[in-house]
Structure formats: structure tokens, C-alpha cells
């Protein structure tokens, strides 16, 4: 039973989305990736979940503003290991156009170990899909599961 569960659950890494002070551009692209049939991330077994405790892959957008920093870290801590963190857009990766702003605490990898970067302003849905595929690969490696 346990092995069967293990076999089945790795088919579907659930996604969780954290907005770390994003302008909403990347969030719209994330919604597009999951919610419209054209890009349909659910083919890969992924779907968005409402609780961080159910998540396997976390997608973070936004440059990590001073106001949300503690909350982002708190929510990120709640995601069970092994988790794969994907930085979506240039803001969490380098700060992007907001870099060195007075209210920007980023880049994100000062506080959180990032696994996959998907730069773009915003990245197109196919690019995000590419990132999710890469994240899934890393996630399976961490679980020690061969496909």
C-alpha cells in the first residue's frame, strides 16, 4: 500500500503560489498557465493547491518587499520537504527593475534556497511550463524516484 501510494503520488507535484510583492504580471501568467486549456499545466499532474501544507513545488513571484518578507518566509517554512522552489520572473531572481529600491529586501535567494529560475518580465506560459518540468525533475531526484 505504501509503495503504491509512493508510486502514484509522484505523478502529481502540486503547485503553490506565493506573491512576494509582485506587480501581478507574473501571477497573471501563472494563472494563464494553469487555468486556460491552451497551456494546461494539469497535463503534467500539477494543480494549484490552497494550502502550503499540500504543496510540492512552490512558485514565487515578486521582488520580496520589506512588508511581505516575514510572511513569505513563514509560509515557505510551512511547505513540507522535499520542496522545490521556483523563482518566476526577474524580480525574485535579481530584483529586476526594482533592484536596490528602498522597500526591496530581495533578491530572494538571500533568504530561501532557490532551485529553478524562470526569468522574464513576465515569462511566457511556455517558459513557466519549462520551469515546472525542470522543477518536477529536481523534485523526483530529491525523492529518489526514477521515472
Amino acid at each position: 500500500m505504501n509503495s503504491l501510494l509512493k508510486k502514484l503520488s509522484v505523478r502529481s507535484p502540486w503547485l503553490f503560489r506565493i506573491n512576494a510583492g509582485s506587480c501581478n504580471g507574473c501571477d497573471v501568467e501563472l494563472a494563464t498557465t494553469a487555468c486556460i486549456p491552451r497551456y494546461d499545466v494539469e497535463r503534467l499532474g500539477c494543480r494549484y493547491c490552497g494550502s502550503p501544507r499540500h504543496a510540492d513545488v512552490v512558485l514565487i513571484t515578486g521582488p520580496l518587499t520589506a512588508r511581505v518578507k516575514d510572511r513569505v518566509l513563514k509560509v515557505w517554512e510551512e511547505i513540507p520537504n522535499p520542496k522545490v522552489t521556483v523563482a518566476v520572473g526577474i524580480c525574485p531572481i535579481s530584483g529586476g527593475v526594482f533592484r536596490e529600491g528602498y522597500s526591496i529586501e530581495g533578491p530572494l535567494d538571500k533568504y530561501i534556497p532557490i532551485d529553478v529560475n524562470v526569468p522574464g518580465c513576465p515569462p511566457r506560459p511556455q517558459s513557466i511550463l519549462e520551469g515546472v518540468v525542470l522543477a518536477r525533475k529536481i523534485w523526483l531526484q530529491r525523492l529518489g524516484v526514477e521515472e
Partner: peptide
């Protein structure tokens, strides 16, 4: 060319 997703190790070589 939009193929931009890359692992963290390549961040500063991108």
C-alpha cells in the same frame, strides 16, 4: 528565444 528556465547553479552564467 524564450527558453529561459534554468537551474540555480547557472544563475550567474545566464
Amino acid at each position: 528565444d524564450w527558453h529561459n528556465a534554468h537551474p540555480q547553479e547557472e544563475k550567474y552564467n545566464w
